[in-house]
């Protein structure tokens, strides 16, 4: 449709250029709405992730935390809205993102070793048809070492403990050398050593100016672990530096009756 009206045309031009200002952000989301069949799961999410942020995505079960990551990656269809990664549509920015899926979504019986899995993170750089070389495996081994898993390199992945599996997938994300990391519940059900390792790695990444979005379920540790929070319950309740976005009021808003006030206090939310 051609627009003859000068005022409307002006507005449209404004809007067409509007996102550019935020478009350099590692992740820019505008009006993102996702629905399964005809029930909305994410409602008009607006969000801009800061460069070098270590961001916790927090919210009750079914709040759409995993759906948000999947929508960013284009793994679930969206009804409305826009996602930009470093100013580009997701299709053109895939090499700058690494994704660590939930443990339950992986076929742990697959005939492959820990080192193999980490090496897969390099496939993008290796390119079509070319084989995995010794130097690629060495690089993958270094990443495994970075998460303290070098001695398990030849182990079939199903024979690792839950925490070890999580570290292998983190090492794979490291091998991808991405600037934006999306991690879906990496700290769920892992041992203390793994938790410490993962946090160290995430902080290193932050120090290098990379950005990480981490779906997190444990309210008690949010303030210790993350400098930014995105509080989600179908819609974006609050987003920003932890001290501002993770407060008693926002938590009440997100969790409603599902959380006792004492639990919110215990979470150490600022007020």
């Amino acid at each position: 449709m051609r627009v003859d009206n000068p005022i409307l045309a002006e507005r449209m031009r404004e809007q067409a250029t509007a996102p550019i200002g935020a478009a350099d952000a590692p992740l820019f989301i505008a009006n993102l709405t996702v629905a399964y069949a005809d029930k909305p799961a994410l409602w008009a999410i607006d969000y801009t992730a800061p460069v070098g942020g270590l961001i916790g995505i927090v919210g009750p079960n079914g709040a759409g935390k995993s759906t948000l990551l999947k929508a960013v990656l284009g793994l679930v269809p969206t009804v409305a809205g826009e996602v930009r990664v470093f100013g580009r549509p997701i299709g053109q920015a895939r090499e700058r993102i690494a994704y660590v899926p939930q443990r339950s979504s992986v076929d742990w019986d697959f005939p492959t070793t820990a080192l193999d899995v980490v090496a897969m993170g390099l496939y993008g750089r290796i390119g079509w048809f070319k084989r995995v070389r010794r130097r690629h495996l060495n690089f993958a081994l270094e990443r495994l070492d970075q998460v303290g898993m070098a001695e398990f390199a030849d182990r079939q992945i199903g024979q690792l403990s839950g925490g070890q599996q999580q570290r292998v997938f983190l090492a794979r994300a490291l091998a991808q050398d991405a600037d934006l990391m999306l991690l879906d519940e990496p700290l769920a059900g892992v041992d203390a050593a793994t938790e410490a390792t993962i946090l160290n790695v995430l902080r290193d990444l932050k120090a290098q100016g990379r950005t990480a979005l981490v779906v997190h379920h444990d309210l008690q540790t949010v303030t210790d672990y993350f400098d930014h929070v995105a509080l989600l319950n179908g819609r974006m309740i609050a987003a920003g530096p932890t001290g501002e976005a993770f407060t008693e009021a926002t938590l009440l808003d997100a969790y409603g009756g599902r959380l006792a006030t004492s639990e919110i206090r215990a979470a150490g939310a600022g007020d």
Partner: peptide, 11 residues
């Protein structure tokens, strides 16, 4: 949604 989060998205 805030008061009945479980029902809200099921409706």
């Amino acid at each position: 949604l805030a008061r009945h989060p479980d029902e809200a998205f099921a409706v």
